[in-house]
């Protein structure tokens, strides 16, 4: 059933990575992604792969879940590789008709492919090991400093977590409305683009009305339970750093400086592009 789909693809298991404070994981992902853009040689990438592999091992999430995220970008990945492979000027290694593959092109294509794959796998690791709830908590607290710039951090986090709760409900409702209209002969599948767009009206009107109604009900229920914004609120599950979180931060910084330093060394034969 539709209600069973998991959002944000969280993988339930017990591991050190799962237990880390979401703020550490957010900061870690950010650092990891940024460093990927600094590497000038393949030693940097090697270090990043080693780092990622270790974290994946620790997270106990089967590798096939990481690859799942790759499927959606496969097309993009291929285009990038082909473009770089054939369109980079330099010393030709192999010529096919008018297109030639250059030495520079090869290394650039490999580097781009590595960068994209590492990016996707690394960031999906965060959503695989952190519940959506925990993630919003982490963002609320981790980005709390933005409040001085009048950014409504609490409100945004609250909105995200309410959205996460209601998306499955609304999906199920969409299914019900679709069936109710199909029973009246509505056709959502065939026809040209304009006809199809028109066919959506009987689906969207009831859906919007219902969503507004739910929003209204929910606002009333929240007020009835004394909700009045983030001021003076306490937390049932406050985020608290533990020893492992400080160690994780330390490792992260070592990784950041280490990989950037190594990754920017000028090493002949191992240079990118």
């Amino acid at each position: 059933m539709i209600r069973d789909i998991t959002l944000g693809q969280y993988y339930q298991t017990e591991s050190l990575i799962h237990r880390l404070d979401p703020r550490v994981k957010l900061a870690g992902t950010l650092i990891y992604v940024i460093t990927l853009f600094f590497y000038k040689n393949f030693v940097g990438y090697a270090l990043a792969i080693f780092f990622l592999a270790t974290v994946i091992r620790l997270s106990k999430v089967p590798f096939k879940f990481m690859v799942r995220g790759m499927k959606s970008i496969l097309f993009l990945l291929m285009i990038t590789v082909l473009f770089n492979l054939f369109l980079t000027p330099g010393t030709p290694v192999f010529t096919l008709w008018k297109l030639s593959i250059t030495k520079e092109g090869t290394s650039l294509a490999v580097s781009m492919a590595l960068r994209l794959s590492l990016l996707v796998i690394g960031s999906s690791l965060m959503t695989l090991t952190t519940t959506p709830n925990n993630l919003t908590d982490g963002m609320e607290k981790g980005l709390g400093f933005l409040k001085i710039f009048k950014v409504p951090v609490h409100e945004v986090a609250m909105m995200m977590s309410i959205a996460l709760r209601f998306i499955p409900i609304l999906l199920e409702e969409t299914d019900k409305i679709m069936k109710a209209q199909m029973a009246r002969g509505a056709d959502f599948e065939s026809g040209k683009l304009i006809a199809r767009a028109k066919a959506m009206v009987p689906l969207l009107v009831p859906l919007f009305i219902s969503a507004f109604r739910r929003a209204n009900d929910l606002a009333m229920a929240m007020e009835a339970r004394c909700y009045r914004g983030g001021e003076g609120r306490t937390k049932m599950k406050p985020l608290k750093y533990r020893g492992r979180d400080y160690i994780a931060y330390l490792i992260l910084f070592l990784f950041m400086f280490g990989s950037i330093w190594l990754g920017r060394l000028t090493l002949p034969m191992l240079m990118v592009g």
């Binding site: 009900d217 929910l218 004394c226 003076g232 306490t234 937390k235 406050p238």
Partner: peptide, 24 residues
């Protein structure tokens, strides 16, 4: 469906006391 805020049962029950500022 329209009055449960939390994504986990216990978190929903804690919502009211959180709003009131009850200690953790």
């Amino acid at each position: 469906d329209n009055q449960i805020i939390g994504q986990v049962v216990e978190e929903d029950v804690g919502f009211g006391p959180e709003n009131m500022g009850v200690p953790t």
